[in-house]
């Protein structure tokens, strides 16, 4: 499988390391090359330095050939744009997005995109733990 990860922060790099270990074909894009230092020594994929809201950067990273695209930059609007380019314009079969501000999730309502909101996941889990223990 060819997996494109956009944003090499804690989430992006962690996922890239895991997938690379599972011998998946991984390419990571980040606009800051120093963020690639988070990738482990065993990471066998490729890195692309560039702004993924520039279509040329996505083309360089072979977006059209990706089986999955994971969008985890720290800007929700940037994520929304990249996710829609991947899903709507390039018909990437699986597009996953991290959404930081849960109210930004509305834009994905009609789209074939999987969204994850860390705060909501965490709060749900905490609430369940608290309510169960009472």
């Amino acid at each position: 499988m060819y997996i494109l990860i956009i944003g090499c922060g804690r989430t992006g790099s962690y996922l890239a390391n895991l997938l690379s270990k599972e011998e998946e074909n991984v390419v990571v894009i980040d606009k800051d090359a120093t963020s690639f230092e988070e990738l482990s020594a065993e990471f066998t994929g490729f890195t692309v330095e560039g702004d993924a809201t520039e279509i040329e950067v996505l083309k360089d990273a072979k977006l059209a050939k990706a089986d999955s695209v994971v969008v985890t930059t720290d800007d929700d609007n940037v994520n929304a744009m990249i996710a829609q380019i991947a899903s709507e314009l390039y018909q990437v079969p699986k597009v996953l997005v991290r959404v930081l501000d849960s109210q930004k999730e509305v834009i994905y309502k009609e789209l074939d995109v999987i969204t994850m909101t860390p705060t909501s996941l965490l709060v749900d889990k905490f609430k369940d733990e608290i309510v169960r223990s009472v």
């Binding site: 809201t53 929304a80 744009m81 509305v106």
Partner: peptide, 14 residues
């Protein structure tokens, strides 16, 4: 900021 502009227009529409 282009991504901001896109998001604003889409939110306004949808």
């Amino acid at each position: 900021n282009d991504p901001d502009n896109l998001y604003i227009c889409q939110l306004a529409q949808r």
